[in-house]
Write a protein that binds this DNA or RNA. Structure first.
Lengths: 200, 200, 200, 200
DNA sequence: CATGAATGAGAGTTCATTCAT
DNA sequence: AATGAATGAACTCTCATTCAT
């Protein structure tokens, strides 16, 4: 028993430490372009030494991945809450909530871009990515089902998910636009996409 | 006369050299993640010295930008050809051509992502970006008009353009998928998006 | 207690390392025109990697500044010893000791020249420079006071200090002269300046 | 005859071109720290190509040297005019004119510093430097003679010349001081030096 | 297990100088 | 004689990662 308790205590502590580093990274990423954040900065923010980072993550990319996963978890939870509202959730609302989240959590979509554009996923990373994305896509699939769109619900949900991400990649940092303008424009586009998918 | 000829000759030569560097960069970018390509590599591929790069581009970012613009020009021309076909161009075809191009020119969409996600556009860069993107969006707007979709054609074309880009960002490098699988999946999604926009 | 000891030990070690780099730089500067000394050379001489330099100094200029400050400290200490000699210190002796020091520590006056002629002092650098120069000038002021020269002792000491520096800038590297000749000539000039200031 | 004329014409033209480059360099140096001026900039200002610079000067240092010599010539002429004034020229006035010149022609004293601190004079450069400096020192010697100072007029003039240069090296760019303050301070010091030398 | 100093390869960029035209 | 495009060595500085303590 003692051994087990000790072990679980250690595991707990280890998990807490990992969480600490993760939070520090997320906070830092929220403040500036995540590609300019250094290992030292993250360590400093987390109150640990740079070397410690490498006891919890094999390399920086793994940490970045975890940050990404955390974001995906957050948005999934958020969408879940929307879907479970007593008064229901329209497709329009769903799309806007998703895009709104990305607007206020630029890091998440920046990382999505980063990994999707050139990330070298390790075998292990791929294994971890899969359930996370599946969970997120499940929610998209659910709204698609509720809205009763199309035949192949899985493909349609992929398309909808793609379209919403595309709004961000295409307009989130369009040069010359203020944050407010960007938000307004991307939400409007989310609305149009919702309508297009609805009335199919 | 002589002066003019000489001048135009020099201008031509200069343009040729610039093209040479640009091509080298594009070729190199096509081979690997463009963010890992170095100035020296590009120079080496172009058969010039590193210093020469800086006689044609103020810095690497400017060169990257030019590569991006070149890609945008290519896809615009390609779409133009499609739109001007004698047998017309369906929305479905348009979407698939676009996504197909991005599939075979990963660099272009990688750069799009890079710049859109975190590019620090200089005033001057923004000024150059604008007409290039406008030209591209014009083609999207034209197909939207031809397909007779929606009321606000400009917004709808933005949404369509976003959706297509999103297909790529979301699935072009989805870990664990082969190039062929990726191509098939993204084209299928392009088709679904086309259908959704058509029947709106 | 242990913590304190550990801390001071680390501080000590850090200081020692910094000293090591500083010494290497000073030695290197003594061998050739300090403006041609590179970061890699200094690192190599100190037996550390180039990167290490930047853990101790924000940039090369800061290191240069420290070398300069070290020299200023040395000459100040030397003058102090002279001023505190039991048999007193004549103005003539003071001037000659100063010029002699500059002769055997060319780097110091080279750096003085470098910084004075075009150094871009950061706010912080200026703040550090001030007390160092003040300490040095205090000694000049003291000998001026002891020699009972003039009315405005501060101005006169500035003038004397200037004159001595001028001997070096004007003749320390006069082309075509050997080191011995230079030393003899500059010391002779120091003597003349001393006499001029004395008999005012 | 024709040959001679032709030759002298060519010589003239060549001299004019050299003068053009020299002026451009002087003008540029007057605008900013001469160590940051590039060959291209000088060529551009002179309206010639970089390559042309090397047809008139073996390398940049030779050009810098010429700029320095030109400055030395100017100050020599200026001092000459002072010495030849009908109402005579006091030592005080002489010193102040010299320091004032250096204040308004920072480049000159900057270059003096540059060459004196680390210049590698070629045999030929030394040969050209000598008469230029001798001419300048002659004027100092003359004012020393007129003021009837000391026994060894040559040495005393060296000391005076040194002292005046030293005022500049020590205070011309003292950090935190405005141009006006610097001028006032250096002129005051020049006055003190004059008095010290006078009353010896 | 945590540390954090040290690493060192490699990045982008500069610029005096050369040489084919 | 003049050009100016090209050179390429050399610069400073960065930062993910390692490993002795």
């Amino acid at each position: 028993m003692t051994a087990t308790t000790l072990h679980s205590l250690k595991t707990e502590q280890r998990e807490a430490r990992r969480e600490l580093i993760l939070s520090a990274a997320r906070a830092l990423f929220a403040e500036k372009d995540f590609r300019s954040v250094t290992a030292r900065e993250i360590a400093g923010r987390a109150g640990v030494s740079p070397g410690t980072l490498y006891r919890y993550y094999e390399n920086l990319d793994e940490l970045f991945l975890d940050v990404f996963f955390a974001g995906a978890g957050d948005i999934t939870d958020l969408l879940d809450r929307e879907l479970n509202r007593e008064d229901g959730c329209s497709l329009d609302r769903f799309c806007k909530v998703y895009v709104d989240y990305l607007n206020t959590n630029m890091t998440f979509y920046q990382m999505m871009g980063h990994f999707m554009l050139g990330g070298n996923f390790s075998q292990e990373a791929t294994a971890r990515l899969d359930p996370v994305m599946r969970r997120l896509l499940d929610r998209v699939e659910r709204i698609v089902a509720e809205a009763g769109i199309g035949d192949d619900k899985r493909l349609v949900s992929h398309a909808l998910y793609s379209a919403l991400n595309g709004v961000m990649i295409s307009y989130a940092r369009y040069p010359g636009r203020s944050t407010g303008e960007t938000r307004r424009h991307t939400l409007r586009l989310a609305g149009i996409i919702a309508r297009r998918f609805e009335t199919g």
